[in-house]
Structures are given as C-alpha cells and as structure tokens.
Design a protein around this nucleic acid. Structure first.
Lengths: 202, 202
DNA sequence: ATCTCCATGTAACTCGTTACATGATTTT
DNA sequence: AAAATCATGTAACGAGTTACATGGAGAT
C-alpha cells in the first residue's frame, strides 16, 4: 500500500477519488455527528444498534485515510497511548455535502448491508421530504415483494404444502417463505410508521 | 493468483479441500433436492424466494468445480447450446453427509447472509430434533437482542427522544432502533411458529 | 505477573460484483 | 434484423475477515 518514500507521484490502482463506498458513507455519517477516533468508530460498528452495519478496525483505518485524501474528513493528531499518534476525525463541509447527495440518491435493496437504515441514521442532515421520498420508494418495493410472497404462500396452502411432513423439501420452502412474508410485512409497517412520524415530528 | 502453466504440481493457495464455504452449502442444498445445471442454480439464487441468498453465475461455476474436486457433487456432461458442454450436478453421499453435519453445527448470527434460513431450507435432510435445537438456539439469541433493544427503546422514550425533531441525530437513532425491535420481534415469532409446526407436522 | 482497554496500523486471504467473451435456438 | 434465453466460463476489481504486530496505562 504505502509505496515508500520517494515514489509518491502516481497513486494509481487506488479507488477513484470520486467514488465513496457504503462503508465510507457509514463512517462519514458517524463523524458527522461528533468527531471520533478510528477506535471509537470500530466500537460503534461492532455493536450495530441504530446502525445496522458491522466491520472491523482493519477496514476502518484505510477507509478513513481515503476519506481524508478525498477531502471529506479532516483529522487532528494527538499523542496516543501506543507507539502511533491518536487521530480524531471530523467531517468537512464537502463530507456533509457528499452525505446529503448520497442520501437523496436511490438505494439498492437487498444488499448485504442495509443501505436504507444507514440513510435513515443520517437523515437529520437532510430535509424530511428527502427522507420521506426515500422511505416511500422503499415502501413500494416491500409492498411488491410482500404481494409476491403472499401469493406464493396462498398457492402453497392451496396445494396443501403446509400439511406435508418435514421430510418434504417443499415444506422447508414453506417455512422460509413464511419468514419472507413476515420480514416484508414488518419492513412495510416500519416504513409506514416512519412516514407518520416524519409528518408529526416537525 | 494463477501460478502459470508448468507449475501445476502443488495447487497451493487454493482453499483447503476440507473447508466448504457458505455458498458451497447453498449450492449443495439446492442440488441435494434435484440435479441442476450451474445456469439453473444462478436463476434460483437470483430470486431468493425461500432461499434468502443471492449470487452471480461467475461465483457459482468455480464453486461447483471446487465441490466436485472435494467429492461432494458429481457432474454429467451433455452437448450444450453454446461452445461448451452443459454440466448437470448432483449431490454425492459425501455431499449429503457434509450438509447434515453443517446443519447441526452452531450458526453465526448477523452475518451478511442468513445462515439460519439456509439451514431451514435444507432441514428436510436431518431429524426434526436437530432443526428444533437450531431454532431454539436462534430463539435465545433473538430474545436477548430484543430485550436489549426494548430496554434502549424504553430509556429513549423516558428521555423524550421520540418527541425530538427530525433534526436531532438521536431521533434518527430512535427510528433505526424501532426497526431493530421490529426485526427481532418478527424473527422471534417466526422461531416460535417453526417450533410449533415441527411438533405438529410429524 | 497477567489481563484488559485504548489505539493504530499491515498482510494474506476469501467472498462478491461487474464486465468480458462465446455461440446456438427461439421469440418479437 | 434484433433481442431474449440457455449455457459456460475468465479477469479485474472491491469488500470483508482473520491474523499479525506494537506498546503504554490501569486493574486483578
């Protein structure tokens, strides 16, 4: 990674400065609230309450320096407890702008991490209308999935699959399908609840 | 990565033959039901109904050959529509044994893919007691998480955080926390429902 | 004496996505 | 004529995990 002193010219092969990863947005969203060290961030991401995201410190430190090279965060060094100085990161104006733009962009659904939850976590940065649009879009997606799943559930019940023994793979299908129905229903209810609360909580 | 021709002796650097990845178990679980081609598997994994897993064909084909090298599946070649022969894969006895052993092993929670759902999808291969133990373990995990989240929710309400404006980051925390509570509650209800059904459906 | 917490980083590897590449048959 | 479907693979990344490495301060 570090090309060594004297060879600092090219930096080729690194991710383009224009692109910010999902993890980058997660870190940005955290330091937009208050300045934090990489270590503090790793603690927050280890326990995903209100965050729905997880990673290890080995990914956080390189990502923070990428964000700093891109001008989205700044760091202040202070004497640390170990051999290296302790760095506290804070979001810059450009960082906040990037976050606001990212929140407004359409999300991918069903990714391995929960992009919508992460955007809601950072929702205090944007107008409530922006978040409402996002949640309404997600609501549509989950409503469509729910319709599909309930339809399959109904057809499974018509064919008596819910009465098969556990030895039949189609009964296993039915068990997992039920979880899909529950998941989408819960997600839908949450979207509605958020939309209601965004109206009342001015 | 590829050591180049002429150095084919060792195969070092490849994943050890003893270890099967989560994706490997997913493919194994699918071909344990009926023999399938890599293409058919990619269609099933693109639409995660009853599967809760997703990937692309570019990952499936190499993984199938790894499984075959490990003796967990066999393939039969037939003239295909394209330049290459079409291969249909089936699980071997060793493959079924690996699946049964994997289902009985404790699962990781909160991984990027849903290991418990995948195990339930393959649950027809094992005795209902094995699956019941698995689901009971998961139930405990989700009950503990739910207790933690509801406690935080209550303390947030005591401090009036649910009545803050959307501009306060702590209100955003509350929105995502609510989703956590809903998720764990739904998961818990599903575990209970599966446990009930495993008793009745002999 | 040992363990845990704070604090930062690198190396090696596995997992996952996007794009490239080929080509016959069927549908629009 | 063009597009979609079936069918298989590789190359080049990007994302994520595990393990290695260092070292002071405070607690047991």
């Amino acid at each position: 990674m570090t090309p060594g002193p004297g060879a600092a010219a090219s930096d080729a092969g690194l991710r383009g400065v224009g692109h910010v990863s999902d993890l980058g947005h997660a870190l940005l969203a955290a330091v937009a609230r208050e300045p934090l060290t990489g270590y503090a961030l790793s603690l927050q991401l280890r326990d995903p309450i209100g965050f729905f995201w997880e990673t290890r410190h080995s990914q956080i430190y390189p990502e923070l320096s990428r964000l700093e090279r891109a001008g989205l965060v700044t760091s202040q060094a202070a004497p640390g407890p170990g051999p290296r100085p302790k760095r506290t990161y804070a979001a810059t104006e450009a960082g906040l702008a990037e976050l606001r733009a990212w929140i407004a962009r359409p999300s991918r659904f069903g990714g391995r991490h929960d992009e919508l939850l992460l955007k809601v976590y950072a929702s205090w940065l944007v107008e409530p209308a922006v978040i409402a649009a996002l949640v309404r879009e997600a609501r549509g997606h989950h409503a469509a999935q729910l319709a599909l799943y309930t339809q399959r559930e109904a057809s499974a019940r018509e064919r008596g699959i819910d009465r098969l023994g556990y030895r039949d793979p189609r009964f296993a299908d039915y068990l997992t399908l039920r979880r899909g129905v529950d998941f989408e229903r819960g997600r839908l209810a949450w979207c509605d609840w958020v939309l209601r609360d965004l109206k009342s909580a001015t």
